[in-house]
Nucleic acid binder design. Structure first.
Lengths: 247, 247
DNA sequence: AAGGGGGATTGATTTGCGTCAACTCTGCAA
DNA sequence: TTGCAGAGTTGACGCAAATCAATCCCCCTT
């Protein structure tokens, strides 16, 4: 009902993809050299989103998907009674907005965790391009499929892991994604609060905080507020698979 | 490592889609009349799967997606230590196998809950058809997107609902899907065990059983083993949104 | 018809995480 | 510098669901 009045900036920018160093994480990956140059016309525009502002909200009409060029986001779904579930944290090169294709309306909120910038990819144009660029079609399908697989592994986490296993899996995943982006796998800043991590992992913020403290006591990580150092990555991974008791 | 030795039957059958009464739930939905007839060549073959047998297993190479023509399936992912998470139950008209596109390898198991039959849709052929049939491309994207939205709502369920809310949501969902298939919305047979329901909902089988009993005591449903009658659908829906205490 | 086995129910007890509450830390603004 | 607000930590306690265990029921096989 309420119009989105987020402070956004539109920037018509050509050469969006061909000069972007994120392509190997993003939609253009695996596309032949000749087709690659055509992709600059795929991106409609770029949009800047300030921290805490929505890129889109649940019930907004679906028109485009978004590739994160800079910054990071959370996606969440809400229950009428106010309960929130964070369904994902998105980093540079990742795609947002796929939830809207099925119904023509977004089914979750996408909120910037820091000042961020996205490439707007009008969906109608994407479908058109995908029909002539085989590699683009395939890469798009792969991205959607991987989202499904990721969601399934979150269901596994939420349905059958205990609190510390969940946090260990979260940290391991963050570390991997940092690595893929050329950042340190052992040292990073979390852009989300304990409450948002908790919501993502199906835990309360106090439980997240206690698990962080416990990991620190065990020498697995060092925590200073949002700054995390992973001291024993193998130890964390072992935790994920650990069965508490089986007799 | 182990080859799939499931007792399957291959049936080359023409007119797979144009004579199928499930089309409005399935991949051909929303496709123009002229394109519709071409779809019979999309389906490679049909395959019968006996109860408890896998349609595919995690780590199997991905070659095709499957449309359920008769019967029903569960999908699950396994942790090395043996823990299982059911990620979904699939009914007629629904699509299986989307998890394999991203990596070229299946990431979950699809097991028949009863003797079932699927249409095999070779993925390479689907991509090819989607490039020339606009409606097919769009419908395929919609199906993947809806899968993502469904998974997000499962994450909401697993992350922030209590046991009885989860079961109420499950029963309400089953009822809706029965309705969509022309079956009674108030009376149906569950094809899965309490343990499988529990795995799906992130609960133990005893908790599922107790919740069933409690619903019956409250006059919301009647339960006889796998046979369910919904007596008060509104009451169940109210349960889903109910906040236990807020002061 | 009898026997057996998997699935389901129900009860007693335990426990992991949530809840409530007090306190600390950090950063920002006056 | 002081004060404040939001985020994070830590402790005490309670509860919902897990665990353990006994029994029942339905269906399949012989």
């Amino acid at each position: 009902m309420k119009a989105t009045t987020a402070p956004v900036t539109l920037t018509g920018l050509k050469k969006a993809c061909s000069q972007c160093n994120l392509f190997e994480l993003c939609l253009p990956f695996g596309i032949s050299e000749t087709d690659f140059l055509r992709l600059d016309d795929l991106v409609g525009s770029q949009r800047k989103i300030k921290r805490q502002q929505p890129l889109y909200r649940s019930a907004d009409p679906f028109e485009a998907i978004y590739a994160i060029r800079a910054g990071s986001f959370k996606s969440d779904v809400l229950l009428e009674d106010g309960r929130e579930q964070v369904t994902g944290f998105q980093m540079t090169g990742e795609i947002l907005g796929l939830d809207g294709i099925g119904t023509g309306v977004h089914s979750c909120n996408a909120i910037a965790l820091e000042d961020s910038e996205v490439c707007v990819i009008p969906y109608a144009r994407l479908e058109e391009f995908a029909r002539s660029i085989e590699g683009l079609q395939h890469q798009f399908h792969k991205i959607m499929s991987r989202e499904i697989v990721r969601d399934h592994s979150m269901m596994l986490l939420l349905g059958s892991m205990r609190a510390e296993e969940r946090l260990a899996a979260f940290l391991t995943n963050m570390s991997q994604r940092c690595t893929a982006r050329g950042f340190s796998p052992t040292e990073f800043h979390l852009r989300m609060t304990r409450e948002e991590i908790g919501s993502y992992l199906g835990l309360k913020l106090e439980t997240v905080s206690r698990a962080f403290s416990h990991f620190q006591e065990k020498g697995l990580i060092s925590v200073q507020q949002k700054h995390i150092c992973i001291l024993d990555a193998e130890g964390l991974k072992k935790l994920i698979q650990h069965q508490p008791c089986m007799h």
